[in-house]
Write a protein that binds this DNA or RNA. Structure first.
Lengths: 167, 167
DNA sequence: CCTTGACCTTCCCACCATGGGAAGCCCCAC
DNA sequence: GTGGGGCTTCCCATGGTGGGAAGGTCAAGG
């Protein structure tokens, strides 16, 4: 019962969070400083491992560390309202959906362009033509080669939270 | 005809690529160094603006700068085989699809959990329960606790291409 | 000619979350 | 008491992007 504490390497193996990240989470205040041996080694109790798994799972679900900070606070708050947790989760889902839509839009355009690309030894390629034409988005089928598109439209800088929609 | 060259600010406005990024692209060799005035100002010709729009469009489609480097080379290579371009595009699409699937998995799980969350003033919350249970395929993660929610979506943490599926 | 102010230059820092690696200390089994 | 594996801290890099400081350029107006 007492010997519950393990070193960071074992904690990493047990929770799937790398030792590097465990130290980082502590450094940034996401997790409380771990206990230490006389020699300075960090020690992790069962409760610490539980928290680490919580963080790991939340990361797997795409939450940012900032979100996780809030989730951990709610987790520790026995008087929390589930509505708060739910709101965090659904806000995150909305974010995920926005990113999915952005990626989906890119994929569709590229698939469309690739479908019209010979993919042979000849140089003609609607994909490069599209990039060179540099128009906004619109997966229209066959395009007229004209240099249409007045283009000075300032595209919406970022329609999504992360820079340029993905990545 | 000759007076076509503009400064970096005008190039930025005309192409939707920030001055900061234009310099960065030059610095990293994505684009050839721009011409300069006697005083050291960069000057952009119509052809330079064309290349900038190409890059902008490719970024909008989610290509990495590394990909764009290759696309630009193919664009400039009049003897290219469209198959090469097509392959680049389809590889990228596959990458996009992988990321979409990862995000979709996260969204579905969260929506499912949120659907079973009261979202009221009480503290009971399956979302936190799930995070705390940390059950995916975590090694040595026994317990079951309650509300294990027989989820349907699989989602496979370690199998994601980029570190943990997104970021 | 000189000032003014908008624009440009370079250089450094920050983000987010993560990994890599070096230099040095700790712990334990032998 | 020694060897080697694990731990410590510290710095650096990633990918793209933005912010800002310190200083030089340019063109218009006086």
């Amino acid at each position: 019962m007492s010997a519950g504490a393990v070193t960071i390497g074992e904690a990493a193996r047990a929770t799937g969070v790398s030792a590097k990240m465990i130290r980082y989470y502590e450094e940034t205040g996401l997790l409380a400083p771990a206990g230490r041996t006389a020699g300075g080694y960090r020690l992790y109790t069962a409760a610490d491992l539980h928290a680490l798994r919580f963080v790991r799972r939340a990361r797997d679900l795409g939450f940012t560390l900032e979100d996780i900070r809030a989730l951990l606070a709610l987790w520790h708050d026995r008087a929390r309202a589930s509505a708060q947790v739910r709101r965090l989760a659904l806000d995150h889902v909305a974010d995920l959906r926005r990113r999915i839509d952005a990626l989906e839009g890119m994929a569709r355009i590229l698939e469309d362009l690739a479908a019209h690309c010979g993919g042979d030894a000849r140089p003609d390629c609607p994909i490069l033509d599209d990039l060179a034409a540099g128009r906004p988005d619109a997966p229209s089928g066959p395009q007229d080669a004209s240099a249409a598109t007045p283009r000075q439209g300032e595209h919406d800088p970022e329609a999504s939270p992360s820079p340029r929609g993905e990545r």
